[in-house]
Nucleic acid binder design. Structure first.
Lengths: 334, 334
DNA sequence: CTGTTAGCGCCTTCAG
DNA sequence: CTGAAGGCGCTAACAG
C-alpha cells in the first residue's frame, strides 16, 4: 500500500505538483482542457486520494469541530448531536464527539486533545469546572459555543432551553388538572448545573404564583441511583405529593421503574410530567405527558453559530444566551 | 492567538527543537535533569500544545479510527459506539462517527473522506452496496472490521449476533407459552441486510422445528412507515397471529404504537418479543420480553480487533465471523 | 497557463 | 547529551 501522493500524479500526468494542486482545488481558470483531462486520468489510474492531514497542516484548518457533551446518556445530548452533525454535514464539516461524563477533568482532557488535533472550534455542554480554560479560549478568540448550560461570567454564547418556563408550564398543567401537592425531582445539583437549578427555580416560582406552598420535602436533587430511595421517602410522607415533575429523562425512567415496582398507578396514584420528550412517551401506558425541548433547532443553531464564528473570526455576540421554547406534549400521565 | 510551536519552546528554553521533541516523546534517556526542567517550564509558560496534525503527517498515523454505522437510530448502534469509544479511549485512540443512513453512496463518501483524513482504520456497519471499495481496502491491507452485518465473499472479519439463534430463542419462548400462530416483522430486506435475513431464516427454521406451519401472511419485511399498515393487514386476517416477533427496536416501537391506538392488550390480545433490549423494556406496561444483544461486548471486540490489526499489520484471521450470544430477557409481554 | 520555491509543525537520523 | 538538516504531502505566491 504505497501511498500515492500529488507528486506521483504530477509525474504521471506530466505536469507539476502545483498544477495538480490547482486542479484539486478547482481553480481551473487558466488550466488547459487538455491538462485537466490528463490530470483527471492520472488521478483515476493511480487511485489517488488527497491527504487531508497534509492539507490541514498547511491551511491551519481541519474542517472538523469537536463536540463535548457532559453526559451522552441523555436523549437530549444524542438528539442535539444528531442535529449538529446534520448542520455540519451540509457545510462539509466533520465532528468528533467526546463524552465528559460530567467530569471536569475529563472535560479538560478532551478540550486539550481536540485543540491539539486542531479542530476549528468546539461545541461544549460545559461541566462548569474549568473556568480558567474557558477564559483562556475566550481570550485567544478560539471559537466555542456552549449548549444546555452556561457558565456565569464567561462570555461564550450559550444555547439553552428556557428552563424556568419549562418548569412553569409543567406546574401550570398540574394545577389545571387539579393537583395541589406537587413535587419535583432532578438529578444532583452539586455543581450548580444550570438547567437543573433553573428548572428548580421555575418550579418554586410557579408554585408561588399559583398560591401553592413550597414544600421542601417534595423537592429533591439526587444522583440517579438514589432516586428510588428519595421517592420512597417522599411518598411515605403522611401527605405525599400527588404529582411529580421529573427534571429530565433519567429521572423519569427511575420514577417509572419505581412506580412499576410499587404498583403505583399513573396518573391515578401519582401524576407525572417529564422534561425531555422521551422516545417511548407516546406509546407508554399511559402515554406520558412531557415538556419537549426543541433539540433539533438547538443543535442546528449551535452548529450555525459556531461555523459562523469560525468564518467571521469575531462576530460580536459573545456571552449572549439564546433561549429556546419548551413545549408541552399533552398526553395522559397528568 | 499566535500559535506557539516547538520552535518557540526551544528558543525559550535555550535548546534545539529536536531536544524539545525528544522531551515530548519521553525519550529522556540522555537528557540532563536541568534541560528537562527548563523545557518543562518553557512549555508551561508559553502554554504550548503540540500540533497533532503535524505529528500525524510525519508519523503517518492519526490515532483515530472511523466508525460508519448504517443507521444511528438503532439503540444497537449507539450502544456499540459507546463501547467502541470506551475501548479506544483506553488506548488513546479517538473515533469519528458517521451515519451512512443505509445508503451505499453516503457510505462510500464517508469511507473516502475518513481515509483522506488518514484514520488508521475503519469499523463499518456495512450497507453491503460497495463491494469494489471493500475489496480494494482488503487488497490494500487497510484495517477494517465489520459489525452487525457481513458481506459475502469479502474477507473482512465481522462481529455479529447469532441471529438465527436469536430468532429461535424467541420462537422457543413463544411456543413454551403456548402460542402457535406466530408472526414476525422486520425492517426491509431489499438489500439483503444480513441480520434481518438471518433472523427471518432462524424464525422459519424454528417454526418448522416445532412442527408449526410457516404462514407467509404472518411474515413481513417493511420500511418503518409501512409497518402500521402491514400490521393492520396481518391482524385483520381471519386467523391473525397471536404473537409477533419484532425484528429490531424500531419495529417494536411501531408495533407498540399500533397496539396502543387499536387498544390491543399485550400479551392477552397479542404477545410480543422484541430483538434489542430497549431502554424502557423493564418499566413498560407490561414489561417487555426481549432478546438482548451483548452490545457492549460486541463493540469492545470490534475495537480490539481493529486496534490489533492496526498494530500488527497483518494478523491472519480475515474473513472470520465472530458470533455473539443473544440473551432472552424474560419479562411479561409474552 | 504552468513550474519553482518555500514553508506548515513535527520527527528523525546523524554528526558533534 | 544536543544541534543541524531533511522531509511528510500539500498549498501559495511568484515567476516564467
Amino acid at each position: 500500500m504505497k501511498t500515492v501522493t500529488i507528486k506521483d500524479v504530477a509525474k504521471h500526468a506530466n505536469v507539476s505538483k502545483s498544477t495538480v494542486s490547482q486542479y484539486l482545488n478547482k481553480r481551473y481558470e487558466y488550466m488547459g482542457e487538455e491538462t485537466k483531462k490528463r490530470i483527471e486520468r492520472a488521478i483515476e489510474e493511480l487511485g489517488y486520494q488527497p491527504n487531508i492531514v497534509a492539507r490541514s497542516l498547511k491551511q491551519k484548518s481541519t474542517s472538523t469541530i469537536g463536540v463535548i457533551v457532559a453526559n451522552i446518556l441523555h436523549t437530549f445530548s444524542t438528539q442535539v448531536i444528531r442535529a449538529i452533525e446534520d448542520a455540519c454535514h451540509e457545510k462539509d464539516f466533520h465532528i468528533i464527539v467526546c463524552n465528559a461524563d460530567d467530569n471536569p477533568d475529563k472535560e479538560k482532557k478532551y478540550i486539550d486533545m481536540l485543540r491539539a488535533k486542531q479542530v476549528d472550534g468546539l461545541i461544549i455542554f460545559p461541566t462548569g469546572g474549568n473556568r480558567e480554560l474557558y477564559e483562556r479560549m475566550v481570550s485567544e478568540k478560539y471559537p466555542v459555543v456552549f449548549v444546555d448550560r452556561s457558565v456565569s461570567e464567561i462570555p461564550i454564547p450559550a444555547i439553552m432551553l428556557d428552563n424556568v418556563k419549562a418548569a412553569k408550564i409543567a406546574v401550570q398543567h398540574f394545577v389545571e388538572k387539579g393537583y395541589e401537592r406537587i413535587g419535583m425531582i432532578t438529578t444532583s445539583i452539586i455543581r450548580n448545573v444550570t438547567p437543573r437549578v433553573e428548572r428548580l427555580t421555575g418550579f418554586q416560582q410557579a408554585l408561588q404564583e399559583h398560591q401553592l406552598p413550597v414544600v421542601q420535602d417534595y423537592i429533591k436533587s439526587l444522583d440517579p441511583h438514589q432516586i428510588r430511595e428519595g421517592l420512597n421517602e417522599m411518598l411515605s410522607l403522611k401527605e405525599p405529593p400527588q404529582a411529580i415533575l421529573a427534571g429530565n429523562d433519567l429521572v423519569l425512567a427511575e420514577i417509572l421503574n419505581y412506580a412499576k415496582e410499587q404498583h403505583i398507578q399513573i396518573p391515578d396514584d401519582l401524576a407525572l410530567i417529564g422534561i425531555d420528550d422521551v422516545s417511548y412517551a407516546s406509546f407508554y401506558n399511559p402515554p406520558l405527558t412531557t415538556i419537549a425541548q426543541p433539540t433539533f433547532d438547538m443543535g442546528k443553531k449551535a452548529a450555525e453559530m459556531l461555523l459562523q464564528k469560525i468564518q467571521d473570526a469575531d462576530v460580536k455576540e459573545e456571552g449572549h444566551i439564546y433561549r429556546f421554547e419548551p413545549k408541552l406534549m399533552m398526553r395522559e400521565s397528568c
